[in-house]
Simulated scan of single mutants.
Amino acid sequence: MAIKERKEREKQEMRNLVIESATQLFLKQGYDKTSIRSIADDIEYSPATIYLYFKDKDEIFYVIHENAFDILDKHLRQHDGIADPFERLRAIGRTYIKFGLENPDYYDLMFIMRAPMEQIKNEEKWKAGECAFGYLLTTLSECLEQKRIRPADLHVTAIMVWSFVHGLVSLYVRERMCILMLPDDTTREVLYSSFDLFMANLKM
């Protein structure tokens, strides 16, 4: 292997090590209580080493955030082949819920954990996040054009759909669904059934 290729591989391996450590520390002790030094201590390197790869803690969080949204976007776009936009919208919503239920830690980092958004706002484009939301907008636009859902403002409808699935997942991730006193698999079915009912009310 060429020296340049080896150095690039080592650089990526180091970045991955930092990201993995930071992810676990953010989840365990929160964003504010996690520092570059605590990440460095966790991976047994000096803080100066981390600064060779990331300018600050915000940038590390941004990379984790962007990676998670990229994964979500890829899951959602598996439904490109569904011609009926209403059925595609239903599939997107159920996939969003499934992603949150199966990746509660990532979901917490993406949507629930309090962390500064300056890094994201300062980026020229919030690529993965915009792609995921843009896919929802495109699908809803088709639903409205083909009169598959009740007439309404596109963006208002998008926020309504997103808020509904986000609320379901957030209640589950933060273990508030325990109030139902049901087995976990039954609770999950309740979430999906609730979404199906919401979709039925949205339909023309």
Results as ranks from 00 to 15, higher is better:
residue 1 M to N: 14
residue 1 M to I: 10
residue 2 A to M: 03
residue 2 A to K: 12
residue 6 R to N: 09
residue 6 R to I: 02
residue 10 E to I: 00
residue 12 Q to K: 10
residue 12 Q to C: 03
residue 14 M to E: 03
residue 18 V to Y: 00
residue 19 I to D: 02
residue 23 T to E: 05
residue 28 K to S: 08
residue 30 G to S: 04
residue 33 K to M: 14
residue 34 T to C: 02
residue 35 S to T: 14
residue 36 I to V: 08
residue 36 I to Y: 05
residue 38 S to N: 04
residue 40 A to M: 11
residue 41 D to F: 05
residue 42 D to R: 01
residue 47 P to Q: 04
residue 50 I to E: 06
residue 50 I to L: 09
residue 50 I to S: 01
residue 50 I to C: 01
residue 54 F to V: 06
residue 55 K to A: 08
residue 56 D to L: 11
residue 56 D to K: 08
residue 59 E to C: 02
residue 61 F to N: 13
residue 62 Y to D: 02
residue 64 I to W: 00
residue 64 I to Q: 00
residue 64 I to G: 05
residue 67 N to V: 04
residue 71 I to D: 12
residue 71 I to V: 00
residue 72 L to C: 13
residue 73 D to V: 05
residue 76 L to V: 12
residue 78 Q to H: 09
residue 79 H to M: 07
residue 79 H to Y: 05
residue 80 D to L: 14
residue 81 G to C: 14
residue 82 I to K: 02
residue 83 A to R: 09
residue 85 P to D: 00
residue 86 F to G: 04
residue 86 F to R: 06
residue 88 R to G: 04
residue 89 L to W: 04
residue 91 A to T: 13
residue 92 I to V: 13
residue 93 G to S: 13
residue 96 Y to H: 11
residue 96 Y to M: 06
residue 97 I to A: 12
residue 98 K to P: 02
residue 100 G to Q: 03
residue 105 D to R: 10
residue 105 D to T: 06
residue 106 Y to A: 09
residue 108 D to W: 06
residue 108 D to Q: 11
residue 110 M to I: 14
residue 112 I to A: 10
residue 115 A to P: 05
residue 116 P to F: 06
residue 116 P to R: 01
residue 118 E to Q: 07
residue 119 Q to E: 12
residue 122 N to A: 15
residue 124 E to P: 12
residue 124 E to R: 10
residue 125 K to D: 08
residue 126 W to E: 09
residue 126 W to D: 09
residue 129 G to W: 05
residue 131 C to K: 15
residue 134 G to N: 06
residue 138 T to Y: 09
residue 140 L to V: 12
residue 141 S to Y: 07
residue 143 C to M: 08
residue 143 C to T: 01
residue 144 L to Y: 10
residue 144 L to C: 11
residue 144 L to N: 01
residue 145 E to P: 01
residue 145 E to Y: 03
residue 147 K to N: 11
residue 147 K to I: 13
residue 148 R to D: 08
residue 152 A to F: 12
residue 153 D to G: 14
residue 155 H to R: 15
residue 155 H to Q: 14
residue 155 H to G: 03
residue 157 T to R: 08
residue 157 T to D: 04
residue 162 W to T: 03
residue 162 W to A: 12
residue 162 W to N: 03
residue 167 G to V: 00
residue 169 V to S: 07
residue 173 V to L: 02
residue 173 V to C: 09
residue 173 V to Y: 07
residue 175 E to G: 13
residue 176 R to I: 13
residue 176 R to K: 10
residue 178 C to M: 12
residue 179 I to C: 09
residue 179 I to K: 12
residue 181 M to G: 10
residue 182 L to D: 14
residue 182 L to R: 12
residue 182 L to E: 15
residue 183 P to K: 07
residue 184 D to A: 15
residue 185 D to L: 13
residue 186 T to P: 05
residue 186 T to Q: 12
residue 188 R to D: 02
residue 189 E to Q: 14
residue 193 S to Y: 11
residue 194 S to I: 07
residue 195 F to N: 09
residue 196 D to A: 10
residue 196 D to K: 10
residue 197 L to C: 04
residue 198 F to S: 00
residue 200 A to Q: 15
residue 202 L to I: 02
